[in-house]
């Protein structure tokens, strides 16, 4: 197991060093300075309605299906936890 600890420490220190390098690079290159403009980067070429017009919500089968899947996911999780709790 000691060998694993050594590998784990090497992995942790290498990964941390790379992450710190990336953060320092980003700060020096002012990557965190203009966060509001960054929100719009995928939209710059589109007609200027970003944040403007508000089309009405259309309730179609897709919306109801996705809401149903969300509810199903919650119900299934609740059933799982109920079974778990029954067994203490």
């Amino acid at each position: 197991m000691n060998q694993f600890v050594h590998l784990w420490l090497i992995f942790l220190s290498t990964g941390s060093a790379m992450a710190v390098f990336a953060v320092v690079w980003a700060i020096r290159r002012r990557q965190f300075d203009d966060q509001d403009r960054a929100r719009y980067l995928p939209l710059v070429d589109l007609p200027g309605d970003a944040g403007g017009d508000r089309p009405p919500i259309r309730r179609g089968a897709s919306l109801y299906a996705l809401l149903g899947i969300l509810a199903m996911g919650l119900v299934v999780l609740a059933v799982t936890l109920t079974v778990v709790l029954r067994h203490g």
Binding site: F32, Q35, A38, R39, P42, L43, L46
Partner: peptide, 20 residues
């Protein structure tokens, strides 16, 4: 998803700082 959903809805991200 971060590229496609804002582009499809023509809506900017809620917060780019939060995404980072």
């Amino acid at each position: 998803a971060y590229f496609i959903i804002p582009r499809a809805t023509r809506t900017p991200l809620y917060s780019h700082a939060l995404s980072l």
